[in-house]
Design a protein around this nucleic acid. Structure first.
Lengths: 189, 189
DNA sequence: GTCGCGTGTCAACAGATGGTGACTTATTAG
DNA sequence: CTAATAAGTCACCATCTGTTGACACGCGAC
C-alpha cells in the first residue's frame, strides 16, 4: 500500500491517491471516507488531495468515473445466460475480474450523501439504465431496466448490511435464486 | 408542527421529539439528520434530546423500533396477491396506510452509517427475514426471504436516488413488474 | 554549484457535530 | 404563599471535517 522509496512523481502519487480514495469510498461511503484517511492510505498529506483534485467532491467524481468497467460488458451478451452471469459478477466478485461490478458497491455506500447521490444517479442512468433498456428491448424495456437495477442495488445493499440467509458468505442458493429472478426479467413479455 | 401554547409536558414533548426525529431520519438518514435540526423541528433545545434519550444513537434506536408497523401485516395473507400487495405498499404509500413500509425508507437512508446499520440489520433480520422465512416456507425459504428483502430495499433505494423509468412518479408498469417478480418468488419451487 | 520550479508538508482556520453541566423557569405539593 | 421538583434553556467543550496559504524539500537545467 505504501511505496518504500518515495520518488517524487506527480502522476504516480495521483494514482496512489485515486486508488486509496476508491478503496475508502467503496468501503466506507462518501461521508465516512475522510480525506485524512484517504491521504494516510496513500502515504500523502491531506492537503495534497485538494490541490490535485480540487476537493472531495471532485475526487469522488473522478473515482466514480474510473471505478468498474462498463457494466454492459457483463450484461450484454448471450441472453440465455444473462441472469447467472450478472448474479455471479455480483456475488462472486473474486471469480471473474474483481472490478466488474465494483461500482455497485461504490454506489450503494454513497447513495445517502446528497452531493454524491447526484453523481451516482447520473452514472446509473447513463451507464446502466439507458444501455440496458436498449439491450433488453421490448415494450417494457424501461421498467425492466429499472427493476434489474433495483435488484442489483438491493442485493448489494443487503450484503453490505451483513444480511445473508445463512449468516455466512453468499451461498449457491442465493446465487441460483438471484440468477433465476434476473433471467425471468429478460425472458418474459 | 409547533404548538402555539407551550405547556410543560414531558410526555408530549418527548413525542414531538420522536416525531421530528422520525421525519428527519427518514428524509436525511442517520448521518445527515443533526440533533439541532431535529430539535428545531420539535421546537426544543438540542440538549433536551440528549437528556431524554441519552444520545443520538439511542434516539435512533427508539425511532427505528417505533417506525412502521410489523411488515408481516402486509406480507402475510393471501399468497396469490402477495406480489401486488407488497408492490403497492412500497410504490403507492399514500393508497394504503402511509406507515406500512415506512421503515424501509428509514432503513435505506441509514444503511451506510456504521452505528445505524447495525440496528437496521437487526430489525430487518428479526422483523422481516425470520417471519418471512417462516411464512413462505419450503426448501429455499431463507434464500427467498433474502431475495425478497433485497428487491424491496433495492426498489426503495432507486426511488430514493431519483431513478425512475419515466423520470416521473412511479408508474403502473413498474408496479406490475415489481409485483410479478415478487409473486414468482413465492410461487415457484 | 546553484537557481528555479515542481512536489510535498505543516499549521491553522472556519464550520459543524454530539454531548455535558450549570443555570433558569414553570408547575405543583404542602 | 412558598418551597421543592420537574422541565427546559444556555453557554460551552472536545472533536472532527474539508480547505487554504505559507513554508520546506528535492530534482533538473544551466
Amino acid at each position: 500500500m505504501s511505496l518504500p522509496i518515495k520518488h517524487r512523481n506527480a502522476a504516480s502519487t495521483r494514482e496512489a491517491i485515486l486508488a486509496a480514495a476508491r478503496n475508502r469510498f467503496t468501503l466506507d461511503g462518501y461521508d465516512h471516507a475522510g480525506l485524512r484517511a484517504i491521504a494516510a492510505d496513500a502515504g500523502v498529506d491531506p492537503a495534497l488531495i485538494c490541490r490535485y483534485f480540487g476537493g472531495k467532491e471532485l475526487l469522488f467524481a473522478e473515482v466514480l468515473a474510473t471505478t468498474g468497467r462498463d457494466p454492459m460488458e457483463i450484461i450484454a451478451g448471450d441472453r440465455a445466460s444473462f441472469g447467472r452471469r450478472v448474479a455471479e459478477a455480483l456475488l462472486r466478485p473474486t471469480d471473474c475480474r474483481p472490478d466488474r461490478l465494483a461500482f455497485v458497491q461504490l454506489a450503494i455506500r454513497s447513495s445517502t450523501s446528497p452531493v454524491a447521490s447526484k453523481l451516482v444517479r447520473e452514472r446509473i442512468e447513463s451507464q446502466f439504465i439507458v444501455p440496458f433498456t436498449a439491450w433488453v428491448g421490448g415494450e417494457c424495456a424501461a421498467q425492466k431496466a429499472w427493476l434489474a437495477g433495483s435488484i442489483l442495488m438491493g442485493a448489494a445493499t443487503m450484503l453490505a448490511l451483513g444480511c445473508t440467509p445463512s449468516n455466512e458468505t453468499p451461498d449457491d442458493g442465493m446465487l441460483d435464486h438471484l440468477a433465476r429472478t434476473l433471467q425471468r426479467l429478460v425472458d418474459d413479455d
